[in-house]
């Protein structure tokens, strides 16, 4: 924990504000993600977690605040530079967001099409796609359509798609929500393996206390649009603050 304090963050959010009309969602949220760590963000439904990560990848323009990833300011970045930076970031959408007019193979090839230069270092798309599917244990689903897969399988394909460019930073928006406990555990193990294998930094948004316990190095609680509490899983779960306690009680 202390050693991380001296490290440089790969991703930093300062004083982030975002409102939709009268709905003030984020009111000065701060966050630092250090290299190689798993940072878990917890917060109630509707507290603005998805809005926050979408700001991070430039899908939503924040009203105020700064976002730096790898020393680059996301908000002022041009389209081209932003696209290059985005190859370093994997994003798992809350609802999987697979392209439903394409097969699993085409879904996985899609992120590669604009980044041919990046693939040249690898062995070609075919091998990359197969490897990504093997990582999530779905090699035999390669020619199926997303509609033919179960929810858990879709989530795993989405995970494979998010990881196919071997990003340095991965953002998971509720990776285990809506899955049965066994599949959820599989996904968590998968995330851990990938983190070990490629030494990525991950930002994980979840409601799932078990998931947080297994995977987190550090946690941030998002309450009322700000980072309400911060610390390791043990620190937070033993906190006396009733607002913090509410997250850990079953």
């Amino acid at each position: 924990m202390n050693s991380e304090k001296n490290k440089k963050p790969v991703l930093e959010l300062k004083n982030l504000h975002k409102s939709f009309g009268d709905n003030h969602v984020l009111k000065g949220f701060n966050l630092k993600l250090f290299e190689g760590e798993n940072l878990v963000i917890m917060g109630k439904s509707g507290s603005g977690k998805s809005v926050m990560v979408k700001c991070l990848v430039g899908l939503i323009q924040p009203d105020k605040g700064s976002i730096t990833i790898n020393d680059e300011d996301i908000i002022t970045l041009g389209h081209k530079e932003l696209d290059i930076l985005r190859t370093e970031i994997g994003f798992l959408f809350q609802g999987s967001a697979l392209y439903d007019s394409m097969t699993v193979r085409e879904n996985l090839e899609f992120p590669l099409r604009r980044h041919k230069d990046k693939i040249e270092n690898f062995q070609g798309t075919e091998i990359l796609v197969k490897e990504a599917l093997e990582n999530v244990g779905l090699s035999n689903a390669i020619d199926l359509m997303p509609a033919e897969l179960s929810g858990g399988m879709q989530r795993r394909v989405a995970l494979a798609r998010a990881l196919i460019l071997k990003p340095k930073i991965i953002m998971y928006d509720e990776p285990t929500t809506g899955l049965d406990p066994i599949t959820a555990k599989e996904i968590i193990l998968l995330m851990r393996n990938i983190q070990k294998k490629y030494h990525t930094s991950s930002l994980i948004i979840t409601h799932d206390v078990d998931c947080a316990r297994v995977i987190s190095n550090r946690m941030i609680l998002l309450v009322d649009g700000i980072n309400y509490a911060e610390g390791s899983f043990e620190e937070l779960s033993n906190s006396s603050d009733p607002q913090v306690q509410a997250f850990f009680k079953n």
Binding site: K54, V57, G58, L59, D83, R86, T87, I89, F91, F93, Q94, G95, A97, L98, Y99, D100, F110, P111, R114, H115, R161
Partner: peptide, 11 residues
Amino acid sequence: TEQIDAMEVSG
């Protein structure tokens, strides 16, 4: 279903 967002994110 956020597929358009997913496209944007993947460059």
